[in-house]
Each structure stands twice: as C-alpha cells, then as structure tokens.
Write a protein that binds this DNA or RNA. Structure first.
Length: 406
DNA sequence: CCTCCACAGGAAGCGCAGGAGT
DNA sequence: ACTCCTGCGCTTCCTGTGGAGG
C-alpha cells in the first residue's frame, strides 16, 4: 500500500527476465532463415530473376491466410535482391507498400516514388505528375518492382493495374512489375477481367503450417529469443498444437510464446511451462476479440451487446425448450432485434430497420463473432438461430467500455 | 383450407460524402 | 470553385417460406 512512491516502471528494470532478445519472438521480426518456405522463395526469386537480364519481371500474385509467412518471405527475397543488386550495380529497384495505409492508386504511387527518389517529397503534387515521375524513373532503364501487401485494400486497383500495363507499353526501356499479396482469395472476383489476367500472370499459394512445422519454427525462434533452458518442450508443443488447430498461423504461435514469456517475467518465474501458454492463449484471444470489436461500427456493437446481455440473462432458453430444442444461449433474431432496439434507445442511439439489422447479423457471422444457423423446419417458419461466437463474459465488459466508456 | 404471424432476403430508391472533371 | 458522378449505408416495399390457430 505505502510503496506507491516507487515508479511503476521500476520493477521492469529490476526484475530478472526470461528473454534474451524479446524482438525475435514478435511477429514483425525478419528471421534470417525461413523453414518450409524454400519452394516459395525459389518461385519468387525466379519471377524476379529476369530483371537481372534487364527484362521485365513477371507480375506475381501471392495468396495465403494470415500467418503463413507471405510478407516475411517476400521481404526476405527482396533483402537478398537488394544486396545482390548493390553489389552488381544492376538497374533494378523495388518498393514495398502496405496498402492498408496506402489504399489508393495515388497513395501507392506516391509511396513508391518516395523510395525511388529518397531525397524529394512529392506530397501535394497531382496524380498525373506523380505518374509521370514514376515513368521517368523507369525510363532511365530501371526495372522496378512494386510490392503491394494487402492488395485487396486498394480501392481503385483496376485503374492502378491498367496504368501500369499502359506504362509498360509506353516505356522504351525499363519496366514496372507488380507483386500483389493478399489473404483474401475472393477479392479476385471483384476485379475487372483484364486486371485479373494481368495481375495473375503468375500465381502462388502459401499453405498453412502444420503442427510439426510450427513446432520447428517456434523452436528456432525460442532458441534465440529466450535464455537457454527457460522454455520447456511441452510449452512449445502446446503452443504449436494450439496454433495449428486454430489455423496453421505462425503469428499466433509466436504471440503465444511472447505472451507466455511476458507473463513469466511478471510473475518472476524462470521457467515457461504449458500452464503459462494456456494462460497466454486466453489473453491473446481476448486481444483478438478486442481488436475485432473496437473496429466495429457502433450499431453492430449494439447488436452484439444485445446478444451478450441476453446470453448472460439466460433468456431464450424457455422459448426454445418449448419449441423442442434446448441449447443454452441460442436466440431468435426477432428477440435480439427487440433487445437491440431497447438498448439503443436507452443509450440515445438511433436504430436501424429490421432489414438492415439482418445484414448486421450476417456480417457479424462472417467475422465469427456470432454463430448463426437457419432454423429449418420445426421453429417459427424460417428464422435464424443466433449464438455468440465468444464467451459472453469476455464480450460484455469490452462492449460496455466501447459503448459507454469515455 | 385459409389467414395470420414471424421471419429471410431481393429490388429499388434515397440522401449523403467525397472524388473527378471542367 | 463549381457541378457531376458514384459508391455506400440505409429504408421501404415486396415476395416467399413455413408454423399456429381458427
């Protein structure tokens, strides 16, 4: 109680730590070797190789779920290319753009130019000027590769791709190639047929890792990130099994170990056991929920809040048992709509029509926040049975903070 | 059998913000 | 600086499905 004089950060300096180099066990770390991605590295570098003979690189489209190593692998190959090009003085250059932040043609070009003309600042120049400047750079005989990470976020991708194909036709020498990275396979369908055929000149897929592969990846990272002997074999096994079960996602596996390590430091333990990993799983999950929920529009948060309140109150059960089904926490969409209206009105929020409410339900379902089933025969015509995708106890405090906080 | 209820989801249209064209 | 266009979020209306009850 009376040790409050001590600075709250002091304990982080004083305490012992299980980490040797914490940065290695974060998702942003670029490892020097990428196990189980040899084939992909080979394929990417072969797409790039033609630039070294002063020809245009192939456009390449890379698809794979989150945490399958797309970005790391591409960055790895680019790093190698950079070193090679510097040594050989080859006229090759590239720009890496994350389209989550640069989500229009103009912004992408601007970001790329920043890489090609590091000393100049083109902010505020017209779109046409920026485009011309890019062409001028290539016209000097440079072969450019623009890597578009999260390419599905680009709003006017059709135009971007079209501009670049036209650019390549106009250019006497030099060229511009596109590498697209995405974790959304369906976004291809929204594209113009011409765009598709250009962009998908060459296509590759990053498969999810299996438990054994995740284990090997973790072992390598853990060996460098943690002090020797700190992490038990069972902890690694558990973390890779949990991540493999979820989605074959290396990112979650790494986050699990990171969190477990942080927890160990907090408790001043010098061993990381599977108990800590399990604890970490809960906290990672919570963080995932928080991320999803906080980016949701207010109206959808209200809908979700309505379901969590109903779930906690345990209502709905009676009506379902009466209908011959009994599963806890399952509700009719109509009941949720009334509860949603009640809550929204009491909070002074506007309410949407029942039609749009149904769209919300569908959307929340695709995020996995709600689980819905068509009622089928036996219940009130055709209706939707709705259930929370996560524990109501975890969701409610998060939502209350979002909706009523500030 | 008919009608009413409770709901799903398609179609049309409306107001708005922001970008493009002039 | 101006209008024009377009995409987006949303409402309104409508058709269809199937149980419950007279």
């Amino acid at each position: 109680m009376q040790q409050m004089e001590q600075n709250i950060f002091q304990k982080y300096l004083e305490g012992k730590s299980v980490f040797l180099d914490r940065s290695i066990i974060t998702p942003h770390y670029l490892p020097s070797s990428l196990p189980f991605r040899e084939k992909q590295i080979e394929q990417i570098s072969s797409a790039l190789a033609s630039t070294l003979q002063c020809k245009k690189a192939n456009n390449l489209f890379i698809y794979g779920k989150v945490g399958t190593g797309k970005t790391v692998t591409v960055k790895h190959v680019l790093q190698q290319l950079q070193e090679f090009v510097e040594e050989k003085q080859a006229p090759v250059n590239f720009a890496y753009v994350n389209c989550r932040n640069y989500n229009t043609k103009y912004k992408v070009f601007l970001k790329a130019l920043g890489k090609f003309y590091p000393k100049e600042d083109f902010l505020g120049y017209s779109a046409a000027f920026v485009y011309e400047k890019l062409l001028q750079y290539a016209e000097k005989g440079q072969h450019l590769i623009i890597v578009l990470d999260e390419i599905d976020k680009v709003r006017d991708l059709d135009e971007l791709v079209y501009s670049l194909t036209r650019a390549n036709d106009e250019l006497g020498q030099g060229s511009i190639a596109l590498f697209g990275i995405s974790n959304n396979l369906f976004f291809k369908d929204r594209l113009d047929a011409r765009t598709k055929s250009t962009l998908l000149e060459q296509e590759m897929v990053f498969p999810p890792y299996n438990a054994a592969e995740l284990k090997a990846i973790l072992q390598e990272r853990v060996a460098n990130a943690f002090k020797p002997g700190v992490v038990s074999a069972s902890a690694i096994n558990l973390a890779s099994a949990l991540a493999a079960q979820e989605s074959g996602d290396a990112r979650t596996a790494i986050m699990l170990m990171l969190r477990a390590g942080e927890e160990a430091d907090k408790l001043q333990l010098d061993q990381i056991s599977d108990v800590l990993v399990r604890k970490a799983k809960a906290s990672v999950e919570e963080e995932v929920i928080l991320n999803m929920v906080s980016t949701l529009p207010k109206q959808q948060q209200l809908v979700l809040y309505a379901v969590s309140l109903l779930t906690i109150q345990g209502k709905g059960l009676q009506r379902l048992t009466a209908a011959g089904k009994s599963e806890e926490g399952v509700f009719f969409s109509g009941d949720i709509y009334s509860e949603y209206k009640r809550i929204a009105l009491s909070l002074g929020e506007s309410i949407v029509s029942s039609r749009w409410f149904r769209e919300y339900i569908n959307e929340l379902d695709t995020y996995g926040l709600l689980l819905t089933t068509a009622s089928g025969k036996g219940v009130r015509g055709t209706t939707t049975l709705i259930k929370l995708g996560f524990e109501a106890k975890k969701l409610r405090p998060i939502l209350e903070k979002e909706l009523m906080g500030e």
